[in-house]
């Protein structure tokens, strides 16, 4: 049955447009166009980001396995990106730093710019500069580095040495425990006005 959308067709951009609009709408509806909410996780006064992304991951993992169980999704046909350890660490740190300084991640900045936030527009400008910097220094810095410490296709279940199902169960328990923990923390701190 799946995939419902075959990549490589002329409708690719149309699907991307529809999914993009839906994604942006949900981001905005979840309050992700507010930089104070986004960086709240780092300063420990708002845990929406953590909850949303954890929920997304657990839902996707559980959903995929369920679909696979009923023969709707072929697990072997799912594309899993290769893990490049150090490039990921460096890239993640740069992304995290930018997230913290600017208060947005790339997707949410576009979302916030769309509703007219000026700080998001400035962030988008920085994003373009960043892309330009990467492009200009690609050959001298990144070209070789981005291919180093290749761990191949690596999944949490492989690292833990358990089946997909067990790893999803463990992940779900961790998610629920984290949600309980952050709601306890949230009870102890004063509400922040945005």
């Amino acid at each position: 049955m799946a995939p419902l959308i075959t990549p490589g067709s002329e409708f690719d951009l149309m699907w991307a447009f529809i999914i993009g609009i839906a994604f942006g709408f949900i981001l905005e509806a979840a309050g992700f166009s507010t930089s104070r909410k986004l960086v709240g996780l780092f300063y420990g006064y708002d845990f929406t980001v953590l909850k949303v992304f954890f929920t997304a991951a657990v839902t996707a993992a559980t959903g995929l396995l369920l679909f696979n169980h009923f023969g709707i999704v072929d697990f072997g046909a799912i594309y899993v990106p290769t893990t490049f350890l150090w490039p990921t660490v460096v890239g993640g740190s740069i992304m995290g730093l930018g997230f913290l300084l600017g208060g947005f991640c790339p997707g949410t900045s576009v979302c916030a710019a769309a509703i007219g936030k000026l700080d998001a527009l400035a962030f988008l400008g920085g994003l373009v500069l960043g892309i330009l910097f990467y492009t200009l220094t690609f050959e001298s810095i990144w070209m070789e580095f981005r291919k180093t410490s290749n761990l191949g296709v690596l999944l949490m279940s492989d690292v833990m040495g358990v089946s997909y199902g067990v790893s999803v169960l463990i992940f779900s328990i961790i998610a629920i425990a984290t949600f309980l923990l952050v709601s306890k923390i949230k009870e102890r701190i004063a509400d922040v006005e945005y």
Partner: peptide, 20 residues
């Protein structure tokens, strides 16, 4: 929600992967 999630997780943990 938590109960449903855990129940699904337990179910998945005990079922194998469907390979077409």
């Amino acid at each position: 929600s938590a109960t449903v999630l855990i129940a699904t997780g337990v179910f998945l943990a005990f079922t194998g992967l469907y390979v077409p």
